[in-house]
Amino acid sequence: MMKFIWLIIITVIINGCGLANKEGTVAAVKEKNTYYPICIKNYTSNREILNEIFYKKPERVIAHHQNIMEALMAIDEEETIVGGAFAGTDTREFSAQYKDKVKRLPEINGFNFDLETVLMYRPDLIIGWQSTFSSRVLRSTDFWHKRGVNTYIVPNSNSILPIGTVEDEYRFLHDIGSIFNRQKETAMLINEIKDEVAYVQEQTKGRKQQRVLIIEFMGRGITTYDKTRLCGDMVKKLGGQLIECGRNIDAETLITLNPDVIFVVNAKGLLANDVAIEKVYNNKAFKNIRAVKNKRVYPIPLIFMYASGTRTIDGIKTFRDGLYPEMKGW
């Protein structure tokens, strides 16, 4: 009789994961003294909602992108990583707090895995961006599900969500904690970010909003990040006013917008921060922009503000220090 009841419970999970809560996860279905199976609300390669069932804790994980590897190190699950890969947007410079844990990581690949190598690793979970599960990288989520391998796509990656928010990063961390049964660890990470945001909001209450522009130099063009992006939500939460303009602008438009503060996105590693802002300071045409005259042009690594995971706190602090220089180091 008990086996029959347990079979019914599993069937309910598979056919809909009907216990979904607001965090996008599902309460663990428990037999006595067990945690798994659990169900996580996630996505397919085609950006469709997927209820992913985990029958046990993952033991052989492929982690595609630096922030994913760092998230696993943050919850003491680095030894589950059997294969890791950097992306072109990663700094390739792990946070100093993981110095000892990095030594336990396997050899890290370049930008993309090849399919044959990943199959050789025999993973039971692959965590990546939506682009990870494409035909040019590791094939679709369906490809892996047919082989009994769980997948997880970071919510704020590749515009899966029409509007990216800090809450989506909370969700990512919460999901990782649920998948590995490390909720206490991820709750601490989430609370650290929440506390920092609340502190800045309290300290800057009533101040006049500063006009902010987040830009990235792409060849000869200038790309802007708007309110639909994670970084836009970060600036908004910290009291900045993100200037609304086109996705791609030219130098003349940048001059006309005349922002109080400019953040320049750096996708080439922390050591390239100075190079990023020099493109603004060294351009004589920009000398009368308010942010340039007041020396308020700041670099921000892409990994701090795009699918940022544990680096979300670094992104919040970077925007905080730019908006409120007097708070730097607080």
Rank of each mutant, 00 (worst) to 15 (best):
I5L: 15
W6M: 15
L7S: 12
I9W: 05
I14N: 12
G16L: 12
C17V: 08
K22V: 13
V26T: 12
A27H: 09
K30C: 11
K32L: 14
K32V: 12
N33M: 11
Y35H: 11
N42M: 11
R47F: 07
I49C: 04
E52S: 10
Y55H: 11
Y55Q: 07
K56N: 11
E59I: 05
H64K: 12
H64C: 08
Q66I: 02
A74G: 04
E77Q: 13
E77T: 01
E79P: 00
E79S: 10
A85S: 11
D90N: 11
F94K: 03
Y98T: 05
R104S: 11
F113D: 02
F113C: 07
V118E: 01
M120F: 00
P123S: 01
I126A: 04
I127G: 04
I127Q: 07
G128V: 10
Q130W: 00
S135I: 10
S135K: 12
R136P: 01
L138A: 06
S140Q: 06
R147W: 00
G148N: 09
Y152S: 08
P162M: 15
E169Q: 14
R171A: 13
L173M: 15
L189I: 09
L189F: 03
E196S: 09
V197G: 01
Q203W: 00
I214L: 15
G219N: 14
G219K: 07
G219P: 03
G221I: 05
I222A: 09
I222C: 10
L230M: 15
C231I: 14
G232K: 05
D233T: 03
K236H: 08
I243Y: 01
G246V: 09
I249E: 10
I249R: 04
L257P: 04
P259G: 06
I262F: 05
F263E: 04
N266E: 12
L271K: 14
A276D: 08
A276Q: 06
V280Y: 04
Y281L: 13
A285N: 13
K287P: 00
I289S: 10
K293N: 05
P301A: 14
F304C: 15
A307Q: 09
R311A: 05
R311F: 02
R311N: 13
G315V: 01
T318A: 15
G322D: 08
G322H: 06
M327C: 07
G329P: 02
